[in-house]
Design a protein around this nucleic acid. Sequence first.
DNA 1: AGTAGACCTTCCAATCCTGACATGTCAACG
DNA 2: CGTTGACATGTCAGGATTGGAAGGTCTACT
Lengths: 189, 189
Amino acid sequence: MSLRHALLGLLSEGPASGYDLLKLFDNSLANVWPATQSQLYGELGRLADAGLITVQSEGARGRKEYAVTDAGRAELRHWMLEVKPTWIQRYDMLLRVFFFGQISTDDAIAYLREQQRTGAEAVDHLTEVGQMIADYDDDFTVYGRVALEWGLRFNRLHQEWAEWAIQEVKAHDRSSSADPCKPSDEHGA
Amino acid sequence: MSLRHALLGLLSEGPASGYDLLKLFDNSLANVWPATQSQLYGELGRLADAGLITVQSEGARGRKEYAVTDAGRAELRHWMLEVKPTWIQRYDMLLRVFFFGQISTDDAIAYLREQQRTGAEAVDHLTEVGQMIADYDDDFTVYGRVALEWGLRFNRLHQEWAEWAIQEVKAHDRSSSADPCKPSDEHGA
DNA sequence: AGTAGACCTTCCAATCCTGACATGTCAACG
DNA sequence: CGTTGACATGTCAGGATTGGAAGGTCTACT
């Protein structure tokens, strides 16, 4: 349930509308904690009900501005310093690697090479983004650089790990002709 | 919807019961694609309905053994080689780092150091596990080593990134006495 | 016999998340 | 005046995920 704290964090730098927050999520938090509009507006309502933020409408309908309350700030601080961090990762590619025994070594290596290639593209793209930030946006220090650096390092991890996996697959293949690693000796009835 | 393919992958190495599969998830896939009992049995039912696996009951009630069909194997192969990989990552700690402006530099650095410490513990633990695998389990090459290596590299990434973040926070702090990066100048009505 | 513990399946409530569809304001342009 | 596009919110269906409760078998030990 950290969407709640993400919102509190963004709001504690100043009031904002749901729309503003959505853009912040898409731009800054996209690779850290993705969220959709539906989630966001829903959670804003719940935060307001809980008294962690206040709502101020500008006119009968249209833009609403949310601001964090003292209770909200306290909750944020508590979460930041005292709640144990959690993480989930669900990564298709790792899952596939587990089942490489089911396909040929060549296919497996081709797959990993392709992943390296797209990973390299991602690194290039992030590097360009970083250059743009460095050139044009003096304000964008903490958010931008932190997210960017994480993204770069994460992508490089992928590539290096893929290289390692390729070597591993090759080594496994060399021995596999004389290595009966339980291919399928006792199934089927 | 990759739980489906994870199950197909595990089953393509031989038939198994839901219980067996659950243990494989908890042991082998825990950090790659976590799944609970409820999800697992539900998906097994759906896979059987779709004709991708067969069910064979041993007696009226109790253990059921699932085996992958040719259609299931085809589906697995298709997914492995032709479906574009996806990944989601939701990581509390990164989110917190975004909001370090809300707490003191000392608190922030203490937090990151603590994360480094627990990260180091995780690396130690994984290294021990790796040693055990190397010592006792000659079979456990592909699964164990691939997952282990990923875990190790991922944890080291955390630690190195935290070190980088500490430097970043310190640098930001040094300038912050003369740098009003919108701390909270216009909120509160 | 009793009971503890591993084995095994089923079901459910609640929440989270995704991807839409629907609605409406407002400024700019032709 | 019509239309395009950015701004802005609300809502809903459906699938994914979590965390449990409940019930049944079988073996081994006391």
